[in-house]
Design a protein around this nucleic acid. Structure first.
Lengths: 117, 117
DNA sequence: CGAACCTTAACACGTTCGTGGTAGGGTTAA
DNA sequence: TTAACCCTACCACGAACGTGTTAAGGTTCG
């Protein structure tokens, strides 16, 4: 049952001890504690820390983004509210009438051309 | 179908014109545009703005949180990566000798990598 | 034409996030 | 016992978020 102290866990995961405490405070990875209060990182916690770091690196995602996702996952009311809002035909510009839609498309076309040039 | 200018939309939704532009920049509510580039808020956009305001008020959620949720909703790779990470039994303090957990976590990790690759 | 809108770009400022550091004090182990 | 850890609680500081304001210039309409 070997568990690592915070400095050891930091070494093997690439986080700093300071950030390990911060990640815990954000509610993302909470290690076990010894009788005297020392953090004890077991294999599962280490794995979570590594995959978390990978997640942040591969996508442009912040810790607070992941914390929010965790909140959504554990709070059905919040999740339903957010997903309900998103489900209602999202960020695409609405077309209000034919002429406006046309000008929007033309504008988009011009911007595309400009971007290419 | 009538559409409101940005100041009119601001009045009827409770946002400021400045924030309406900011919300658009965040990718959350993009109004139509007139031929000369004026924002035109139709009924759907106004409704989205009102429900968005309600969402931010009822839960302690930031605009960037909702923007991130939108990103997850529209990017399956991101969504799968985040939800995959969260699925591995999250912030509960682990009890130290959990060897059976380990293999589960490793399996999870491999699946994550495979999904991303 | 002129007032009252609209546009984007920029400056400003308080707040939160991410991160490192330090201080004061307990724990562990040679 | 003493060095080397650990803890919490702060201070600091740059970057990003949220928001207002202002500047410079087009658009609309009486």
């Amino acid at each position: 049952m070997e568990a690592l102290t915070i400095h050891e866990a930091a070494s093997t995961t690439g986080w700093s001890p300071r950030m390990l405490r911060y990640v815990e405070q954000a509610g993302l990875v909470a290690p076990a504690r010894s009788a005297s209060g020392y953090r004890l990182y077991g294999a599962a916690a280490l794995q979570r820390l590594r995959t978390l770091k990978e997640l942040l690196g591969q996508f442009d995602v912040s810790l607070s983004d992941v914390a929010f996702a965790a909140r959504m996952a554990s709070d059905p009311a919040l999740r339903d509210a957010v997903q309900g809002w998103l489900a209602a035909e999202a960020s695409r510009p609405e077309h209000v009438n034919a002429e406006d839609w046309l000008s929007f498309e033309q504008d988009k076309h011009e911007k595309l051309l400009a971007a290419v040039a």
